[in-house]
Nucleic acid binder design. Structure first.
Lengths: 327, 327
DNA sequence: TTGTAAGCGTTATCAG
DNA sequence: CTGATAACGCTTACAA
């Protein structure tokens, strides 16, 4: 409604002075005071669009995630939000539905809305980050790393997670351990399966036929579990590579009257909103919120002009051990 | 990177003509073609910030919700997103944590970012919508209605929901039915409790001492349920007014070895991500996604200039019956 | 320190 | 139908 010109007139100063007060640039105390009073008087709200046009960037960060209905990603979002807020940035959440086209669309919007930076959990396609990077907009990868770009990343150790979970099943005495993982186009899905594969081989097991790729959602877990149970020699245990798929898998097992310890189950990720802690299920908890916090911190550093080479931070799945920093 | 001036130069036309092509305003076919080619050639992306500054509004809708970690609200968000996307709007998700101050902050940002409109599930405080409404920005209330403003609203029938759930418990033979609801500052919490209260009185029951206000989350449900069980004469059934609280309540019941039908449980809202459908729990499913879709549709109509009096749409909890439209 | 004035990239007005 | 040109509200040299 009112502009810095109105405030300037009321305060008897120039628009430039008003702008300076708003931006904390040196102005004589009394005039600063007059400006502040005038601003309050007019209940003046600075127009961010104008500022953004002039400064060539906004105070908004885009957080691009594949599934807003997955509690893992909402936790990441909370982490990002907390850090960004504190630094005066707003966060806009963009849901790609694991669709590279939607992702591309959001990245285009990030450019044309002059957003300050992007935190991206890529949908798995070959995201085109050039337009953003070309304009000097920092991007931080979270959980999943886009191919072919050397950018700051905050990741989980998917291979170790898959391996640990599977080893735990062996330790419990199971022998034919299957793996349900996400789409083969998604890096984390492949790496969790890889961890499982390593553990199987270390134990002289036979992975053959026991690997299922599906979508990372409840329906995917149901389908894959159904499929596994229908095998000639079904597995006696299963490693499930994410939280939502495990819900589906456990649903199917329950429908077949199969519950641990009659069958072994290990999951990469916290099970969401459970009424009862699932007895006998091995859970590898993930620091989702911290993932978001770290990603936001890295992005903020870049926004403040930090110009060192890209960093990769691998958060430990194990709350006890330290996070690794990989260059 | 490139502007309409660059495109204009390359196409041999004026910037105004480029703008017209971009906005679908009558331009001679051949020139329009030349412009499109030039734009592609330069991989031109229009600067939304500039457009927004000039047009006095952006193509962004704010969706302000109290808890991004509640699957009910993420479903609402999906609904909003689907409709808004299709109409060319982006949706930014703002999480208030049920904190009126955060909400106020986001509403201020909506103003200063020139957002096209707002869909709001208010945190319960007295939201100040004047700055937005004063600038002609439409606001649609979803799920919860802010006090003192006559705006389009898309709601659930909380009273009927509370009443139906409670009546179902009576029908199952329970007699001392408690109620766990959300913060008394939140309208929906009060109305669900009101429905419970009505049902209790209709059945000659005694509500005294069996009502608990808490927060709408898992921890709230746990605390309230614990409290109820510690009563001298504990209830033999409980109506829980939302999904997350019911998870908490069921957790506590399970810890006490109490499962339906030894105790009656009815819930307003779908239980999230359950491994097993909770046996014996009465669930009133809610059309969360449709809530979001309707809210977005109403907002879009307003954005297209619709100027009729404020409408209130009450979606039926019962999938069978029709939605009511209240003026 | 302060003010003047020139943009930032669009869209809208107004002649032609 | 097309092209200059003036805003939109702010920041930032540049001068004073």
């Amino acid at each position: 409604m009112s502009t810095i010109y109105d405030v300037a007139t009321l305060a008897g100063v120039s628009p430039a002075t008003v702008s300076r007060v708003l931006n904390g640039i040196a102005v004589s105390p009394e005039r600063a005071q007059r400006v502040r009073e005038a601003a309050k008087e007019l209940s003046f709200t600075p127009n961010r669009t104008a500022r953004s046009l002039r400064k060539q960037h906004s105070e908004v960060i885009a957080l691009v995630i594949p599934d807003i209905e997955n509690p893992f990603f909402t936790s990441v979002a909370r982490g990002v939000e907390d850090i960004a807020q504190a630094a005066g940035f707003s966060v806009v959440l963009c849901n790609t539905d694991d669709d590279p086209e939607k992702e591309a669309r959001y990245l285009r919007i990030a450019v044309s809305e002059n957003m300050a930076g992007v935190i991206l959990a890529t949908a798995g396609g070959q995201a085109d980050l050039a337009p953003l990077l070309g304009r000097g907009r920092p991007i931080v990868a979270v959980d999943r790393r886009p191919h072919g770009h050397d950018i700051d990343s905050v990741l989980l150790d998917s291979v170790a997670g898959g391996r640990d979970a599977t080893l735990a099943l062996y330790a419990q005495g199971f022998e034919r351990i299957a793996c349900i993982t996400g789409p083969s186009t998604v890096e984390t899905a492949e790496r969790r399966a890889q961890g499982w594969h390593e553990a199987v081989r270390e134990n002289g097991g036979d992975p053959g036929g026991y690997l299922r790729y599906t979508d990372f959602r409840v329906a995917g877990g149901r389908a894959a579990m159904t499929d596994l149970l229908a095998m000639e020699t079904p597995p006696d245990a299963v490693f499930v590579a994410n939280n939502l798929m495990s819900v589906g898998a456990l649903q199917i097992l329950a429908e077949h009257g199969l519950t641990p310890p009659r069958i072994g189950v290990a999951v990469f990720g916290d099970l969401p909103f459970l009424v009862q802690p699932p007895i006998g299920v091995t859970v590898i908890p993930l620091p989702a919120r911290r993932l978001g916090e770290r990603a936001a911190s890295l992005l903020l550093e870049r926004l403040e002009g930090d110009d060192q080479p890209a960093r990769t931070l691998v958060l430990s799945n194990n709350p006890g051990s330290d996070d690794r920093s990989v260059t």
